[in-house]
Amino acid sequence: MRKQREQVAVKVKTLHPDAAIPRYAKALDAGFDLVAVEDVIIAPGETAKIKTGLAFAIPDGYELQVRPRSGISAKTKLRISNSPGTIDAGYRGEVAILMDNIRIPSGAISHECFDLSEQPIQVEQPVDRHAYLIRKGERIAQGVLCEVPLAMFEQVAELDETERGAGGFGSSGVGTQSK
């Protein structure tokens, strides 16, 4: 028998007539869809701010994490800049997605770029061939509501020892070790 998930009321305000109220695509999804409210072209090597036309009142004790959609990451060279992005409970402005086109400029300028399916698409203005067009109404990211406890910081003279210690990136190696 499936456990009933806790539901948390989140107020959402539409700031654009074409804004899509978030929804979960499937019953067991952790993330809900965030949708673009305008067409945006992202040139290679550039970052674009893609508006959702939505503002949220996240309840105290929670954050809204903005995460990539796996299909976009798998099929394209588009990446969410600050992933996961955090929308704090005190923020009431429009949620926008910062997206990077990590392709290298081709130097070929034309009226053709790529869509989110990596298919060539015609555009009105001249663009670098490695640009992407995000269309109004496309699902561009997902939001996940997460509980956030407050840290209570305690200054100490020493920290307890661990196996890793002060080892940083790569300190545990890259391969698996069998015993």
Rank of each mutant, 00 (worst) to 15 (best):
K3P: 14
Q7L: 14
A9D: 10
V10K: 02
V12R: 03
V12P: 06
K13W: 01
H16I: 03
D18P: 01
D18E: 09
D18I: 04
A19R: 02
A19L: 06
A20S: 08
I21R: 12
P22N: 08
R23K: 12
A25W: 02
A27V: 13
A27E: 15
D29M: 04
A30R: 02
D33I: 02
D33H: 10
L34M: 03
L34D: 00
A36D: 01
I42T: 08
A43H: 03
P44M: 10
P44R: 00
G45S: 08
T47L: 04
A48R: 05
I50T: 00
I50G: 02
T52M: 00
T52Y: 00
G53W: 09
L54V: 06
L54I: 14
A55T: 01
I58L: 08
I58C: 12
Y62W: 12
E63C: 07
Q65A: 13
V66C: 10
V66K: 07
V66T: 05
R67C: 14
S70P: 09
I72R: 04
S73R: 08
A74M: 07
T76S: 05
T76V: 13
R79C: 00
R79D: 00
S81F: 06
S83R: 03
S83H: 09
G85L: 05
G85I: 02
G85A: 04
T86W: 11
I87G: 07
I87M: 11
D88S: 12
A89T: 00
A89C: 08
A89G: 07
G90A: 00
R92D: 11
G93M: 04
A96D: 13
A96E: 07
M99A: 10
I102K: 02
I102Q: 04
R103A: 01
R103D: 09
P105W: 06
S106T: 15
S106A: 11
G107Y: 11
A108C: 12
I109D: 13
I109A: 14
S110N: 06
E112L: 01
C113R: 00
F114Q: 03
D115K: 09
D115R: 11
L116K: 04
L116Y: 04
E118N: 12
I121S: 06
I121N: 05
V123T: 10
D128N: 03
R129E: 15
H130R: 07
H130W: 03
Y132A: 04
Y132M: 01
I134V: 13
G137E: 01
Q142A: 06
Q142K: 10
L145K: 04
C146I: 15
E147L: 06
E147S: 08
V148A: 13
P149D: 12
P149A: 11
A151N: 11
E154V: 14
E158A: 03
L159H: 14
T162F: 01
T162H: 01
E163M: 12
G165Q: 07
G165R: 08
S171W: 12
G173W: 14
V174G: 13
V174D: 05
Q177M: 09
K179V: 02
K179T: 03
